[in-house]
Amino acid sequence: MLSRLFDKFRAFPWLLLALLATAVVGHLAPHQLGVLVWSLSKLALGAYLGYWIDRTIFHYARPGDLFHMANRLAAQDLNNGARHMRHQASLAALRRVGVIAAAIIALGLGV
């Protein structure tokens, strides 16, 4: 139960970094604070939404699960199957990157 809660806050360090950058800009150029907060919130929200959109749509093909399956196949000395599964896991990771990038760009453009 606790591990599932921590899984949901995996991107928390990025949020903390954005808040720290906001504090620095607020100190150096307070007149730009509204623009920065708006931009950072859209970026963070796009990344968060993109991640969860990918997990929701492709619940059956998560990159971590596929890499884990490839390692199990390699441990069973099924190298051909492990190689294929690593390829699938790599494609799933690239797919996730694409979905997250699309969500960030969509929110950044104001869609």
Results as ranks from 00 to 15, higher is better:
Gln76Ser: 09
Val35Glu: 09
Leu5Gly: 03
Phe12Leu: 15
Tyr60Thr: 08
Arg72Gly: 06
Phe58Arg: 02
His68Asp: 09
Trp38Gly: 02
Ala101Thr: 12
Val111Trp: 15
Phe6Gln: 12
Ala93Pro: 04
Gly50Tyr: 06
Leu49Cys: 10
Tyr60Val: 05
Ser41Gly: 03
Arg4Asn: 08
Leu17Asn: 01
Leu16Thr: 06
Leu33His: 03
Ala29Gly: 00
Ala21Asp: 01
Ala74Glu: 08
Leu28Val: 11
Leu16Ser: 09
Leu107Asp: 04
Lys8Tyr: 10
Gln88Glu: 05
Trp14Val: 10
Ala75Gly: 10
Gly46Ala: 07
Arg55Lys: 14
Gln32His: 14
Gln88Leu: 15
Val99Glu: 11
Leu40Tyr: 12
Ser41His: 01
Thr56Gln: 01
Val99Pro: 02
His87Glu: 01
Ala92Tyr: 00
Ala101Asp: 00
Ser90Cys: 01
Ala89Lys: 07
Ile104Thr: 07
Arg96Cys: 15
Val97His: 11
Leu19Tyr: 09
Arg10Leu: 10
Arg10Asn: 13
Arg96Ile: 06
Ala23Glu: 07
Leu91His: 03
Asp54Leu: 05
Gly81Thr: 01
Val35Cys: 01
Trp14Leu: 14
Leu16Trp: 05
Met69Phe: 06
Phe6Ile: 11
Ser39Asn: 14
Leu33Tyr: 01
Asn79Pro: 00
Tyr60Ala: 15
Val35Ser: 07
Gln32Val: 05
His84Lys: 13
Ala106Tyr: 11
Gln88Met: 12
Leu40Thr: 03
Val111Glu: 07
Met85Pro: 01
Gln88Thr: 10
Leu45Met: 12
Gln76Ile: 00
Trp38Asp: 12
Val111Phe: 15
Met1Asn: 09
Arg4Thr: 03
Ala75Asn: 11
Leu45Thr: 14
Lys8His: 14
Thr22Ser: 12
Leu5Phe: 13
Trp14His: 15
Leu28Ala: 13
Ala102Tyr: 03
Ala93Glu: 11
Arg95Val: 02
Arg86Asn: 12
His68Gly: 13
Met1Pro: 09
Leu43Trp: 11
Leu36Glu: 03
Phe9Glu: 05
Trp38Glu: 06
Val37Glu: 03
Leu16Lys: 00
Gly110Trp: 05
